[in-house]
Amino acid sequence: MKLLAVALAVAFPCLAQMMIPEPDKGKALGSPTAPITIEVFSDFTCPHCKHFHETELPALMRDYIVKGKVYLVSRDFPLTGPEHQYSRQAATYATAAARIGKYEPVADALFANQDFTKPTSWVVNGQVWECVAAVLTPAERTRVQALAKDPGVVAEVERELQEGLATGVNSTPTLVVNRGGKRFPIPSTVDYSLLRSFLDAPK
């Protein structure tokens, strides 16, 4: 079903504007019946994504997700390039952690330890697993390591990347707000007060 959705979105870009790809529930926050769904396409090595995760996301959580107004779905969009060599690895571990309901603590740890100025940071020394393992119990570590090698998990990361590309994501983080059957990509630089006026605007 997910593959069909991606294939349709790639073949008919106009459909990508209308379809909300089936979310991975392990990467979602809030109630699926909320009137607004926000997809966040982000990358663990992107500093703007770290800023979004640590400042705007808690505000969204407090003002909209907890109140049942917004259903938030995280989507991995691993970047490529010299500073993003561990992006896909981090996305794969996070997706594997989502399968056991541990996406949020793993995402928190990856973003909290994302610092390009510190040689001890995983984005510099490539010790992605060590960063992920620090927030898991021994039993969870074993399961996440096994799941990270699962072709289904690897394919999910690639599928989310392709979904982002089909939606027109060209920078991270990009928020795609789904309201009233329409999808609105919102720039990553959006000020929270302006985002609020959009979310609060009557249809």
């Binding site: 609105f184 630089t189 000020d191 006026s197 605007a201 009557p202 249809k203």
Partner: peptide, 21 residues
């Protein structure tokens, strides 16, 4: 045409970072 369009235009305008917030 509607409040959502007005809010979206404000977001687009702000993205230029020319006008103070």
């Amino acid at each position: 045409k509607d409040p959502m369009s007005r809010a979206l235009f404000a977001i687009d305008l702000d993205a230029y970072k020319i006008i103070p917030l």
